[in-house]
């Protein structure tokens, strides 16, 4: 059963990822990106991380892809779509080196054994456990990330307001 779910989700994830990079129209790419993120959320559920799966759906599939779609629809991309060329030598080189990378990962991690020390406790990423971890052990990285978010907000406002500011 777990294998069946794994194989199904793998097929969906890989197929949608390939569709993202092969579609000519950016709107279709964004929609396949949603499918890819939903399949990854399925993986997170099977890996005992329901909270991460929920955040994945809300933040990635909900917010980030909507942002992509807004920008795609704001800009006139017809020229860019017409000019997007097919697989050149960079693409072939990328596929060759990527295959090498995947093969190396396969060799190194195929026999990834459980860590020393015997049995591994089952991970259960409930909201309580996640909250404790984030606000006790990882509180400083979290605070740094909040500053990063603030900087991003200010940066976006400044970038969006640039033309209006120059007009004064």
């Amino acid at each position: 059963m777990t294998w069946l779910v794994f194989v199904l989700l793998t097929v969906v994830a890989l197929a949608s990822a390939v569709m993202v990079i092969t579609q000519k129209n950016p709107v279709y790419s964004a929609l396949f990106l949603v499918l890819n993120m939903l399949s990854l959320a399925g993986f997170y559920v099977t890996l005992g991380a329901p909270v991460v799966a929920a955040v994945q759906v809300i933040v990635y599939a909900g917010a980030i892809v909507v942002l992509f779609l807004f920008v795609v629809m704001l800009l006139d991309l017809r020229k860019s779509i017409a000019r997007d060329r097919s697989l050149g030598y960079e693409g072939l080189l990328a596929i060759a080196l990527g295959s090498l990378f995947v093969f190396t990962m396969l060799l190194v991690f195929w026999g990834a054994s459980p860590p020393a020390g015997g049995t591994v406790s089952a991970v259960n990423g409930t909201m309580e456990q996640i909250g404790k971890g984030l606000f006790q052990k990882w509180v400083y990285p979290l605070e740094v990330c909040s500053v990063l978010l603030l900087a991003a907000i200010i940066g976006v406002v400044v970038l969006a307001n640039k033309e209006a500011g120059q007009g004064k």
Binding site: V20, I81, G88, A94, I95, G98, F101
Partner: peptide
């Protein structure tokens, strides 16, 4: 690793 490589190929291939 496969998903990462698909993303990397996309970065190298697309112009948009």
């Amino acid at each position: 690793a496969l998903l990462f490589v698909i993303g990397a190929v996309g970065v190298l291939r697309r112009r948009n």
